[in-house]
């Protein structure tokens, strides 16, 4: 089975701190990581390969440093990494990104399954999976939390819904987006990480010309949506600091709740 995993490198936004004086994001020490949902997609691909054999290719788009995400994927057990990197790709919305990734998948060719995380923690759009699937004209199942069986021409999965789940049979080739419930990702093998850093490592870098796209169709230029304004969210909160030790603070807080008829 040939599996392509879409992987994104993201800033680790789960531990964000704000400067108490300016309210600005403290950027120092925020590391880049493999997007958490994508890590589950990698694990799913690797455990499928362990059962059925085959080959796994991790595909990512990003600046040159995003090669780290692919190196780590190789450390986990992926066979090959491809990084789409080009200044022209920068600033892409999901329309342009799904086009770029779709083109790269076409160039790779011959796959049975594409796996990706449900969404990336820096954008939370959850759009790339379905959009790539549509570009490639293959069926999709999103929110997958269990892969029950893989057959020759189809795959049996469970899809998480708000109030339960659905069991779905999907024809192959297909694209699945997965959620954390699916598995526990393994840690990379240190030997694999070392190999991934070598000159001969199976990592390729492709630019716009390599995948045969014009710069006007990718990145910011190829995007259909644009950020026209950014602003700090206006907090309409009173933001009152209640001082004193635990007892005093609790007392004055409950007082405030009573004043506002909240209790």
């Amino acid at each position: 089975m040939r599996i392509i995993v879409l992987v994104k490198q993201v800033p680790d936004t789960t531990e964000v701190k704000l400067d108490p004086k300016t309210g600005n994001l403290i950027r120092e020490g925020i590391e880049s990581i493999i997007n958490p949902d994508d890590r589950h997609a990698l694990e799913a691909a690797i455990s499928l390969k362990e059962k059925t054999g085959g080959k796994i290719i991790a595909l990512s788009m990003g600046p040159p440093q995003a090669v780290d995400a692919l190196s780590e994927a190789i450390g986990m057990g992926v066979d090959e990494g491809i990084l789409l990197t080009d200044r022209a790709f920068a600033g892409a919305d999901t329309w342009a990104t799904s086009f770029t990734l779709g083109k790269a998948v076409e160039k790779i060719g011959g796959f049975d399954l594409i796996l990706c995380g449900r969404q990336a923690i820096d954008g939370d759009t959850a759009q790339i999976g379905p959009q790539v699937a549509d570009y490639l004209k293959i069926p999709q199942v999103t929110y997958v939390f269990e892969i029950e069986a893989v057959r020759k021409k189809s795959i049996l999965v469970k899809r998480r819904m708000e109030d339960g789940y659905e069991r779905i049979q999907c024809e192959l080739p297909a694209l699945l987006t997965v959620i954390g419930e699916l598995n526990t990702p393994r840690y990379a093998m240190v030997g694999g990480l070392i190999d991934a850093c070598r000159e001969k490592a199976p990592i390729k870098l492709w630019n716009a010309a390599d995948i045969g796209v014009q710069t006007c169709d990718v990145g910011l230029e190829g995007s259909l949506t644009h950020v026209i304004r950014t602003f700090a969210p206006k907090s309409q909160r009173q933001g009152e600091m209640i001082e004193g030790d635990a007892e005093a603070a609790a007392k004055s807080l409950i007082g405030k709740l009573k004043e506002n008829s909240l209790i």
């Binding site: 040159p64 090669v67 990480l193 000159e199």
Partner: peptide
Amino acid sequence: MIRSNPEELIRKSIAKFV
């Protein structure tokens, strides 16, 4: 050729485990 730095990569991976 763009490649990762093994020292940073391994430190990060082990740090995550820790």
